[in-house]
């Protein structure tokens, strides 16, 4: 893949937990030397945002039904630290599998 992966981070209001989760993903991407673009939004806008951002991956801290089009990860471990490493491994594994 020659472009940066687009990760869409979503929560209920797009103000608190998605901001946190977005910052942590950006920091981890730097550590792993992977280029990503992180976008934020509300889960209620998922369909519209997926289209407008052309996101490759979704990380949500609110309940979002699984989708056929893109992988969806539960972002709560980014708030508590519990299971955070495993989640990062899963997210960046998914990033590495993205095709152009």
């Amino acid at each position: 893949m020659n472009r940066a992966a687009v990760i869409l981070v979503m929560c209920g209001s797009s103000i608190a937990t998605s901001t946190l989760a977005a910052v942590k993903i950006e920091e981890e991407a730097k550590r792993r030397n992977v280029s990503v673009v992180v976008k934020k939004g509300k889960v209620s806008d998922a369909d519209v945002l997926l289209q407008s951002t052309k996101a490759d991956i979704i990380v949500a801290t609110a309940v979002l039904p699984p989708r056929d089009d893109v992988p969806v990860f539960n972002g709560v471990p980014l708030l508590t630290g519990i299971g955070q490493k495993e989640l990062f491994d899963q997210i960046f594994d998914a990033v590495s599998k993205i095709k152009d």
Partner: peptide, 29 residues
Amino acid sequence: MGGQGGEVQANLVFLLLISNPDDHVAFLS
């Protein structure tokens, strides 16, 4: 939050009052 892990017996609650999230990244982190 996120629907997983069953109900939470909360003994600490943090009520967040946020105006512009981009101004509060340091606080939220």
